[in-house]
């Protein structure tokens, strides 16, 4: 823990537009606490978000923020990380962003093991558009666009990520900020792609997934839990119903994508010369010889 960074460094004057009781407040706080715990200064991170209630998060904290478009924050974050691996790159986006419109980027980020931390504000409903079912809504969920109840079963983020090759799976609950902070901090420390799926009540549009609903079911994985065993992790990732596990469900160290890119061997490209000859030692004449 660093002495010089505190949560106060992350305060920002803009008041969130979230509804009172929204889980996003806790996610914001958990993220700020995790930054402070790791001694990260605000300029050392870039928080990329998509579109939705939770994606406004970068506007409410003192950190570099890129508030992008719906579905694409993982792609934007991947580009940023590839260009400057020195930055701590975090994505904060909802379940629609991450598992719906942007699901393709999510799957490929998992197998790519790109070094970003993907925090999903998983409230299982579309809140900003005022209450439609989402990719993680339960079957039968009645919304404005599913008046007879949602027909599809929900997408299961953790098993999907595990199957897709993710090297870090975390689950947290917005009703327990301290625990969430620990999971987020471990995710940011993880080298490679890390997913933190945060169970988050939407008090306005998803009363069926309330604080009470989760409080009755969640439990924290104990110190004796071994997150490196993939078979055990798969079972835990799939556990959903009467009991829902929280914590670091899976963690395995694998080479990150960026450390395997030959062009990054001599450091971030953004810190190197733009002059091709100066940067590479290859002369223009040599390049042009290809064409004679």
């Amino acid at each position: 823990m660093s002495e010089d960074v505190t949560i106060a460094d992350y305060q920002y004057p803009t008041q969130p537009t979230w509804c009172p009781g929204c889980g996003d407040f806790a996610i914001l706080q958990g993220l700020q606490m995790a930054f402070a715990d790791l001694g990260l200064k605000p300029h050392e991170s870039l928080v990329v978000s998509g579109i939705g209630c939770g994606s406004k998060l970068p506007h409410y904290t003192n950190v570099n923020g890129f508030h992008s478009i719906h579905g694409r924050p993982v792609a934007v974050a991947t580009g940023a990380k590839l260009a400057n691996p020195d930055l701590n790159v975090v994505v904060t986006a909802g379940d629609g962003d991450s598992y719906g419109i942007g699901a393709n980027h999510f799957l490929h980020a998992c197998r790519r093991n790109i070094g970003i931390t993907h925090i999903v504000e998983d409230n299982r409903v579309y809140g900003l558009t005022k209450g439609q079912y989402s990719p993680t809504s339960y079957k039968g969920f009645v919304t404005k666009t599913s008046p007879e109840g949602a027909i599809e079963p929900p997408l299961e983020p953790l098993p999907t990520a595990l199957t897709s090759g993710a090297t870090f799976l975390g689950r947290a609950f917005s009703g327990d900020v301290k625990h969430m902070k620990e999971v987020i901090a471990r995710a940011m420390e993880h080298e490679g792609y890390s997913l933190v799926d945060v169970l988050q009540p939407c008090v306005t549009f998803n009363p069926g997934r309330s604080y009470d609903f989760y409080n009755e079911r969640i439990y924290k994985l104990g110190d004796d839990y071994d997150p490196t065993d993939k078979q055990v992790a798969r079972k835990k990732a799939e556990e959903w119903g009467e009991r829902i596990p929280l914590g670091v469900i899976y963690e395995r160290n694998m080479p990150t994508y960026e450390e395997q890119v030959p062009a990054l061997e001599d450091g971030p490209i953004v810190k190197r010369s733009l002059d091709m000859e100066e940067r590479s030692g290859v002369s223009y004449g040599e390049i042009k010889k290809d064409f004679t």
Binding site: L46, V48, F66, S68, I69, G71, R72, A75, V76, A77, T78, G79, A80, K81, L82, A83, N84, L87, N104, H105, L107, H108, V261, P262, A263, L264, D266, I269, V270, R272, M276, R279, S280, V282
Partner: peptide
């Protein structure tokens, strides 16, 4: 790309391609 130190990426889609470029450019590439 290796000899010239240029990061090249063939991603999962054109959507990924353009958004990765925006992310990279935002931080200075």
């Amino acid at each position: 790309s290796q000899e010239l130190s240029i990061v090249t990426k063939q991603p999962e889609s054109e959507l990924a391609a353009v958004n990765m470029a925006i992310g990279a450019s935002h931080v200075g590439a």
